[in-house]
């Protein structure tokens, strides 16, 4: 058996804000070299969990270790080995692109010559060489995000934490971000991210958890989760009482979602034919099940604050 060290281990991790329980005694672990995702609707507790891993928000109770060190007592040591891309681009508006990276390098005690070298490499890595002397305010959204990524890499982190790294980016920038993350993973960097884009999570994550109301609902690889909770395919049709009774009669595995019925199946072709002939379905769409189906099934369709 191959031993893979765990980079993050959380047990009974709990965070309360007054009466409100943001993270409700969850357990999770992230292996070295893994790309791990935290998914969940707004207010699920993802960002709070990220902040506890980053050692900037103290836990109410539980244990949380990063690189085998306690987040309560080894904050500096942990933060030396970690890079963070926060939800909000908190670039320093008083500085240029180049200065943002260089000033950040000082916080990690990187010697000046080494820092200058790394800044050059990172500017190239995120394609911002030509913007080096631009103040950060005049960068586009995608450029800002890339600069935040570059900044998170200045200390050559072994663990990279990204809170909604691609939010608000155009498809080009998003794909570029994905490429960069895949590249970093190849170099052995452990990556933990949160995202609202389920397609992104499917593409990138080796393993993920879906959180809701401060609890972890499920954990697994995207493929396993889809297989386990939905099956390989979904047949969709319009909501109609006749169809529902027909499906009931056939004991089909279905769910009514708004104005739509979804039938979960591992043989969409057969089911579609069957339904078309026997249940007199009008509009039928068969498609592959996605992580989004799992997400909505588990967390419901109700809007979140």
């Amino acid at each position: 058996m191959i031993y893979i060290p765990q980079v993050i281990v959380g047990k009974d991790v709990r965070k309360e804000f007054g009466e409100f329980t943001a993270v409700d005694s969850v357990a999770f672990s992230v292996d070295e070299g893994e790309l791990f995702g935290f998914l969940g609707p707004n207010g699920a507790g993802k960002t709070t969990t990220m902040r506890m891993i980053q050692c900037i928000s103290p836990m109410t109770s539980g244990t949380l270790e990063v690189f085998g060190m306690d987040v309560n007592s080894h904050q500096r040591e942990i933060k030396f080995k970690m890079g963070v891309v926060p939800q909000e681009n908190n670039l320093d508006p008083d500085f240029t692109v180049y200065e943002n990276l260089f000033v950040f390098s000082r916080y990690f005690d990187i010697p000046e010559n080494e820092a200058k070298k790394r800044v050059e490499e990172l500017l190239e890595f995120v394609h911002l060489e030509e913007k080096r002397d631009t103040m950060t305010e005049s960068l586009s959204g995608g450029m800002k995000r890339r600069l935040v990524l570059a900044r998170a890499l200045i200390n050559k982190p072994r663990l990279l934490i990204l809170d909604e790294p691609t939010v608000g980016l155009d498809p080009q920038s998003r794909h570029l971000m994905w490429d960069k993350l895949k590249g970093l993973k190849k170099q052995g960097v452990t990556i933990v991210l949160t995202t609202h884009y389920l397609e992104e999570a499917s593409q990138l994550c080796d393993r993920l958890v879906i959180m809701d109301n401060g609890k972890i609902l499920v954990e697994g690889s995207p493929r396993d989760l889809i297989q386990e909770h939905i099956g390989p395919a979904i047949v969709e049709t319009d909501k109609d009482p006749n169809i529902i009774s027909c499906l009931e009669a056939h004991q089909a595995n279905y769910e009514v979602l708004g104005e739509e019925i979804q039938i979960y199946t591992d043989n969409p072709q057969e089911i579609t034919d069957h339904l078309l002939s026997e249940c007199k379905l009008k509009r039928v769409t068969a498609r592959t099940a996605t992580l989004e189906d799992v997400f909505l099934k588990l967390t419901g369709r109700k809007l979140r604050e």
Partner: peptide
């Protein structure tokens, strides 16, 4: 406004 403190405390600084 600038979130400069947030950015800095993500580094080894407290």
């Amino acid at each position: 406004y600038q979130k400069t403190f947030d950015a800095i405390i993500a580094t080894p600084l407290s």
